[in-house]
Nucleic acid binder design. Structure first.
Lengths: 189, 189
DNA sequence: GTCTATATAATGATAGAC
DNA sequence: GTCTATCATTATATAGAC
């Protein structure tokens, strides 16, 4: 502390932060197996050796960069009455989400033997279970499954396969029918 | 022809057939990138060199083994009136499908730069477009998208993530609601 | 028709210099 | 704190023997 010559701790933190951010983009683009630590390091403008140094391994980096964001909790802050509308709005809207969508990473990485189980556990605990808890009435598990799978399929088609609605009319037709479906699944019944 | 000493053409065909069959199982289990030509050759009981010899490359083998099966056409032979029921039955039923489901392979391989584009094209041409053609009325593209994505999401959860319904009651609840949803999307509206 | 042996090219990780 | 140099591993593909 106070030594003007040694680079200080905050620089290392900033570097690690930059690596994390670039890792999110590269994992988004290529999935876990397809991503290379070299590309992440190059994009962050640091040496590849720093990844092992700061995160232990490629898997350790993935865990810090992706896992914490596999959550739907942000949708549960606002009233459940508008949940169907808000979900439909977000998942029919096809902006690339600033180059990082954790659910795209999930879809591109589930078949990886290294991080597949990790992703499944995180998804269940951070997305499916909270979704079940906001549902009232019967068949909670069945309804949560249909909601989650319909949304996952849309993410797959729009953001992974990159086949979004071709025009505003098609997007609006999808949004309208999706909203009705989600409403029926969310309301007690 | 007629030479008793040379092994004949039918043996090579049988070998190629065996390689194709084992390739389907291995690609199903690991996805394109995760599968190795060694594992496929070992499982088929042949030498790894035969894969290049008979199929040109790993990609060539994948194309012959998987692409032709990415079709929903078999559902369109029977009357469209029962289509919703038949789709719901098949995709809620969670038998492993004899170790090979082409849509599982698709989900595990879409992020591959080698075969991803191939899969997208095949899916669009053999599944989405035919589905659009059996729909009557308006919003065909939107309705086909919702049907295909709901089914894809269920395949993902049940067959890729391997989290099928926990019991018969849950499965029946899913089947019932899914059937109603698909019916609404298939019927003119 | 099938196999052995090898060429070539990536990758994740690390020891040690600066 | 960061980088250079390198290791060990693993993959597809192929030339040529049998």
């Amino acid at each position: 502390m106070g030594d003007g010559r040694t680079t200080n701790k905050r620089d290392a933190e900033a570097t690690a932060e930059r690596i994390l951010h670039c890792a999110q983009e590269v994992f988004h683009k290529r999935g876990y197996d397809g991503a290379t630590t070299r590309e992440i390091a190059d994009r962050a403008g640091v040496n590849i050796a720093l990844i092992s140094r700061y995160f232990g391994s490629k898997r350790g980096l993935f865990e810090k960069a992706i896992t914490p964001y596999l959550s739907l909790e942000r949708f549960f802050d606002e009233p459940v009455e508008s949940l169907a509308d808000r979900l439909a709005d977000v998942y029919v809207h096809t902006t690339p989400m600033d180059g990082f969508d954790p659910f795209v990473v999930l879809l591109k990485s589930v078949s990886s033997p290294d991080v597949g189980p990790l992703l499944i556990e995180a998804l269940e605990r951070q997305a499916i279970e909270p979704l079940k808890r906001v549902l009232k009435g019967k068949d909670k598990a069945a309804r949560a499954t249909l909601i989650a799978t319909q949304l996952a399929g849309l993410i797959l088609r729009f953001r992974v396969l990159q086949s979004p609605p071709r025009n505003a009319a098609e997007r609006e037709a999808i949004r309208k029918r999706l909203t009705a479906y989600l409403s029926a699944l969310i309301e007690v019944g």
